[in-house]
Design a protein around this nucleic acid. Structure first.
Lengths: 228, 228
DNA sequence: GCAAGTCAGATTGCTCAACAATCTTAGGCA
DNA sequence: TGCCTAAGATTGTTGAGCAATCTGACTTGC
């Protein structure tokens, strides 16, 4: 047995977590860290052993991950790390434009999410100066998560988590955070300041162009992938 | 053993369905038919026996249902049919206003979804004349599903399925389809005709008022529930 | 050489039985 | 009444096992 999951005897400050949830979290982390790449098979027996859980427990974790869109399950053939294709990208950006632009346009003045937006923008600029592009990617995602939060809707926030989960897979396929994120740092700041100044209509329009451009850049990266 | 699930030896035209999926479908159906009501406990052992599946299989089904928002799982205490509370209602309508109004405003001319919208509207009017209010409820949901389809986004459609799943629970608590749906039949027709006439801005505005009213009616019904 | 058929090995889908951990509840006691 | 305890019930997790299905290599016949 080569368990990776901790097995503290419970009784800590944090919430109660089952082994199933731990397993799911560990797989999520392996995917987002690139140990598991899109298209990889995820065999039950091997993974169960490497995580130190039983097959049954792992299968429960798979059900969760499947519905999060992280893995794809084919009956009798097993689970694969999901491969975001071009249609996925197009759909995700369609949804983002619809929700983010509206959220910005309707943003209430002095909304608590402003704080998160500003800290994400500033962190991203610092990280760029340090050439920490992975950090920039994370900060950029935090910025847009804050935009979603402007809508004050738990359900939309949950949707956003799913969208970024899938987007991260796509970013991972391109694997060039500078190419993907550099063009947007200044714009993030610009959008934030427009919102704070109450010019939500302008901010929303700027964000719309921004998201179209981001989609184009990502799709162009995909194009290059498939032709090489 | 008193299995309810069919166990055909496989090999039919339809998609491959696992026992887990069958179990989940059966539970979904029991909830939407009112056999299981919000707040009901759903004990693993009993339900597994009544469905004719093992506890492990049922637990996998629970994972799916949990993420669909149909049941709530509390660690070490089991699963309950979800109880939509007032915050749930408010959030769902917030999301619906944001997405449906935008989808209508951006609707492409002669979109295929128009057909569904019209057939749903007409079905609802006929059902009203037959006093088939359960039918009206279903047609009304079909109408709004078609509105979501105007956005041409698989992810938004999936979101809509989740929202209506939860809404159905709320409607079930009120249990007065005429009260809930009668005020909207004429408006549905009006909105449809505005869209078809290309007056999407007007249609969107009308829909927004509509959704605010629907929310108010549902919340008022809730109010009466808790005070009686 | 190539298409079709066959068969063993691997993997998944599902079940069962068992046990530890946790929650609930009913009694007992101060 | 209010707290404590012990028994009972339910969940969390495991491991073994078997049938169904898929995969890939091998054989066969053209």
């Amino acid at each position: 047995m080569s368990s990776v999951l901790g097995s503290a005897p419970a009784g800590e400050g944090g919430a109660v977590v089952s082994r199933t949830m731990e397993a799911a979290a560990e797989i999520r982390s392996r995917i987002s860290h690139g140990e598991l790449k899109p298209g990889d098979r995820v065999p039950e027996a091997k993974l169960a052993e490497s995580l130190g859980v039983s097959r049954n427990t792992l299968r429960e974790a798979f059900r969760s991950l499947n519905q999060e869109g992280l893995i794809t399950q084919v009956p009798n053939r097993g689970a694969y790390v999901a491969i975001p294709n071009i249609n996925t990208i197009i759909d995700i950006y369609r949804v983002r434009r619809l929700i983010e632009c509206q959220a910005v346009a309707d943003a209430l003045p002095r909304h608590p999410a402003f704080t998160d937006m500003r800290s994400a923008v500033e962190a991203a600029l610092e990280q760029r100066d340090l050439d920490d592009w992975a950090g920039v990617a994370g900060s950029n995602i935090r910025f847009h998560r804050a935009i979603f939060e402007l809508a004050d809707s738990p359900r939309l926030n949950r949707l956003y988590v799913q969208l970024t989960t899938e987007l991260r897979l796509a970013f991972g396929l391109i694997d060039d955070p500078e190419y993907l994120h550099a063009p947007f740092l200044e714009r993030n700041l610009e959008i934030l300041e427009l919102i704070e100044a109450g010019e939500t209509a302008k901010a929303s329009e700027l964000l719309r162009e921004y998201l179209f451009l981001a989609e184009r850049i990502l799709l162009a990266g995909y194009e290059r992938l498939s032709t090489t």
